[in-house]
Design a protein around this nucleic acid. Structure first.
Lengths: 199, 199
DNA sequence: GTCTATAATTAGATAGAC
DNA sequence: GTCTATCTAATTATAGAC
């Protein structure tokens, strides 16, 4: 027997997952709340009930991705037991690539939203990107590197090189006949990117 | 005095430029022909007259980007007079980064379209990506490299690392307070990426 | 909580005036 | 060639039944 509160949470979660997919595949405007409702096996009216507006739904969905990033990637990084600092950095990069391969929505959303200078981008930077940059990167991955001027360039080089083939999987399949979600491909890509960034 | 044929060509060009911007900013579905018409200082009816359907307009606009790529990047690459093969490769990469910085539409469109496995992606691969890959990359940049298995990974590493900060300029401005279109930034990024890929 | 019905906008494509 | 008017379909948000 399920209480109403449990029912509520379960439905919200289903809608959020559908919204994540739809927004990252189609972009904010082209993704329709009807389509999201259908993906979540419910109706458009329920989305309004739970999230009020499409904008609020988007924020909740994006928040969910970052939560996932912090949970999954965070625990993975904490479990790395490598003494050599360069090999440690390589393994961090490999884990990032593995994450972005399993969750291409993150990169798709970043590119889709980062193109626009609007209220959603301001919210994204303020709420998620800046905190993550300060905690994870400035005080973590590139900490004490003395390469302050290079940090942004390395930052986008890692994100772009690491994520692109997974974000555009259909193109990779058509152009190269490769399956980017396959483990061989993911590990090969992770290793290439790790060794490019930490030779 | 302008003939009707000149008038026709000029208007078509204006519409195509507006379509390139709109499609790469918003994606196929979210970009409206009315918005494109307004950007081109004309009306929706004229777009139908010149291009029949939104799909045909998209193909013509994408074709224009690849024409630009072949013209601009092609002549630049032909003018490089570098004897050392590694430094030559670095300069090719730098020129690619300069191009993508000046024309972020290309990468935006690739990510936007490469996510989908539809008729437009098939058309894109068949008409532009595969020919370019075969002529420019397989027989050019990575020619004789014996790294056949690594080619796709290096390919997407270059495209992703080289293009990302320019494709999401608004995010870069908000998050780092940097202006990615500025010459200093472009040259620094080009050099970082070139040295990562060809140490 | 969930769903159906509906109001107000906006979309692409067509037809026809000039 | 170019523009206006219009048709049909789809959009978000709201109101209310159950």
């Amino acid at each position: 027997m399920t209480t109403r509160a449990e029912q509520r949470e379960e439905t919200r979660e289903r809608i959020l997952e559908a919204a994540r997919d739809a927004f990252s595949e189609l972009g904010f405007k082209a993704a329709s709340t009807r389509d999201i409702a259908a993906r979540a096996n419910t109706t458009q009216g329920l989305i309004t009930y739970h999230f009020r507006t499409k904008d609020e739904l988007w924020k909740a969905a994006v928040g969910g991705i970052f939560e996932l990033l912090e949970r999954k990637l965070g625990t993975r990084l904490a479990s790395i037991e490598e003494k050599d600092p360069r090999e440690f950095a390589r393994e961090v990069i490999r884990e990032y690539v593995r994450f972005t391969a399993a969750h291409p929505e993150l990169f798709r959303l970043m590119v889709e939203q980062g193109k626009h200078d609007d209220a959603r981008t301001r919210w994204l930077v303020k709420t998620h990107l800046r905190p993550m940059y300060e905690n994870v990167f400035r005080d973590g991955l590139w900490a004490g590197k003395r390469n302050g001027a290079l940090a942004p360039h390395l930052h986008y080089a890692l994100a772009g090189a690491g994520s692109l083939p997974f974000a555009i999987g259909p193109e990779v399949r058509r152009l190269w006949g490769l399956e980017p979600s396959q483990k061989d491909f993911v590990e090969a890509h992770a290793d290439v990117v790790a060794k490019l960034l930490v030779p």
